[in-house]
Structures are given as C-alpha cells and as structure tokens.
Amino acid sequence: MQSRTVRLVASTVAALTAAGLLAACSGGDSGGSTTPSSAPSSGSSGGDGVDPALKVPAPLPTGDLLNNPCAVLSASQLTTIGLKTEGVPDDRTPKACSWVSSTLAQNSVGIGALPQNAAGISDIYDGKSSAAYFTPTTVDGYPGVYTDKADLRSSGTCQLWVGVTDQLAVAVGTTIGVGSNKSNPCPIAEKVATAMIEHLKGAA
C-alpha cells in the first residue's frame, strides 16, 4: 500500500506525498485517512492583498511543517485519533508525513505543507475553477477548504487545506480503504487538522 500512500499535493510546481491510513477515530468504528492528492492549479494571488476572510488569526510555527512534518502531531494525539505513533516521512521537497491506522492497514492520513504557494490558502482559493469540489471551512478558527482536482470522497479520499500563516497552506489528506468512515472521510481530515493546529499552538 506504500505506493498508494498518501499523495499530498501537487501544485503546478511540485508534488508532495504523505502516506498513512487512519483507524477508528472516536470510539468504535474505524476510519482511514488518505493523502492529500493534488491541489487545483493555483493562480497566485500575489501575497500582497490577502482576502480578510482568509487571513489567519495568529500565524503558527512552520519549522516542523517544512522540515520535520512527522513531528506536527504528538504521540498522544495520534493514539487518540487511532493512528500508529510512528510516522512515515517523505523527504522529497516539499516534505510530508503519513501515519497508518493502528488497527486497519488499509487506512491512512497524510500531512504536508506547500511552500511554493507564497500566498498560502489564498492560492488554493484561486484554483477553485479547476476543482472537482470546493467547500470552504474553518478549522479551529483557521481558514480552510475541502478541495481536490478529482472527487474521490465516496471512496475514502478527502483533501483539506488549512492556512497556518498568510503565506503557507497545509494539506491534510485521508485514504480510507475500509470501515464506516470510507463513505464520509472528510471529518477524519478535520480531526487530524484540528490536532495539528493544537499541537502547533503549543509550540508557538
């Protein structure tokens, strides 16, 4: 399943990959996570004028996201979510990390940042026209959007983008092969993204 392991964003410039399958996420049934696949082609918004609605409430530390993404979730968070605590790093540029479900090897979740998009989440919004689905959201107060070039949500794949600074967007992708969350994977991506933000806040 490693080949399928979370493919985290590919913008027009690069593809980041993260693999991991997620397990049961809250008491009982198992869920999985995918890998962020490719982001819609982004037309840069130029970094100067960030839409006020997309500004982050407080920039989060980006050191681990860019250099050691396997460190953006704590062991206790991973255990609570239902993932193995050992992340699988992808050291290509940009770096990414994936975690496999602690109970279901067919499920995984991946996280990776996209530093090429200098306007962060605004660049992801600029790619709306090429997206198969596009659902704005917020995660723990931070601007985000569920979006991807192909809509594979009914097959267990959901991609969530979150702006952690006004210059950096992070993709959280799920690949859920089995379990009740396969037909509704996006809440798993949100759960993982929320845990990531909480952990990064603690590192601020």
Rank of each mutant, 00 (worst) to 15 (best):
Q167P: 03
C158D: 06
I197D: 03
S98G: 15
V109P: 00
S11F: 03
Y125W: 13
S30Y: 06
G31F: 11
A193P: 02
S129F: 01
L66V: 07
P143L: 04
S180T: 11
L73C: 13
E198M: 09
C186I: 12
P61W: 02
S108H: 06
F134H: 14
V139K: 06
G156V: 08
N117F: 11
T62D: 01
G202E: 12
L83C: 07
V13Y: 08
D91M: 00
P185T: 10
I121F: 12
R92W: 01
T80R: 06
A19N: 11
I188L: 13
S26W: 01
T80M: 04
D148I: 04
S102C: 03
I81L: 15
T138C: 10
T35K: 01
G43V: 14
A23P: 06
A39T: 10
S155D: 14
L160P: 01
H199Y: 09
P136A: 05
T157E: 02
S38C: 11
D51G: 06
N117L: 14
G144R: 04
A118R: 09
L22Q: 01
G31N: 08
G120L: 03
A189V: 11
P187H: 14
K149A: 06
D29L: 15
G112Y: 00
S41E: 07
R92A: 05
N181D: 08
N117D: 14
G47S: 15
A71M: 03
A75G: 12
P185V: 11
G27H: 07
P40G: 12
K128D: 04
A39V: 10
L114C: 09
K191W: 00
T137V: 15
P52D: 11
G120I: 04
I188A: 13
L104N: 09
D123A: 08
W161C: 00
V192W: 02
A58V: 12
S108I: 01
A39K: 01
S37C: 13
P57G: 03
G49V: 11
